[in-house]
Amino acid sequence: MTDTTSNTDTPRLQAERDAGGSIVDLSVTVNGTHHQVSVEARRPLSDVIREDIGLTGTHLGCEHGVCGACTVLIDGEPARSCLMLGAQAEGTEITTIEGLAGPDGELHPIQQAMMEAHGFQCAFCAPGFLMSAVALLDENPDPTTAEIREELSGNLCRCTGYQSIVAGVETAVRVMKESGK
């Protein structure tokens, strides 16, 4: 376990205390690895994941819950990491985009399918779309196109017009059914 004593003495946290803000000691598991960090109480989970834990695959678009780019799984359920305080995630298990591929680097079927379908163009929105799609397929391995569209309606893409993203998820559904994964 990391010693947090030195961490709480950083100028950043000292400045927060001086400004009247709380510091919280936060313990979370991200992609199977336990992390203990001291952060400002007002720090959103998205910043904790990106800046304190160093996993920058989770993207921040709007930072107020509209674009969905920061979607992660909290105890298996999709959530906007920008709309949660890190403090609220205490004790949870979080899965980010970095947690999808296997330990040997083998892509998750949804990642592979999305690549094959040329699902994204710039792919800034990709982490959010992929985490939403994984949440959908975990619950419903055989969704209709309408269900895919409904589930992904919380994520914005400014490049593709969505057709290729939906096609990618449909490809993933087919591949996963055939391979029994």
Binding site: E16, G20, G21, S22, A41, E63, H64, L85
Partner: peptide, 11 residues
């Protein structure tokens, strides 16, 4: 981090 600082309580 966009919110202003606050004292956090978790009863």
């Amino acid at each position: 981090m966009k919110a202003p600082p606050f004292i956090y309580h978790r009863p």
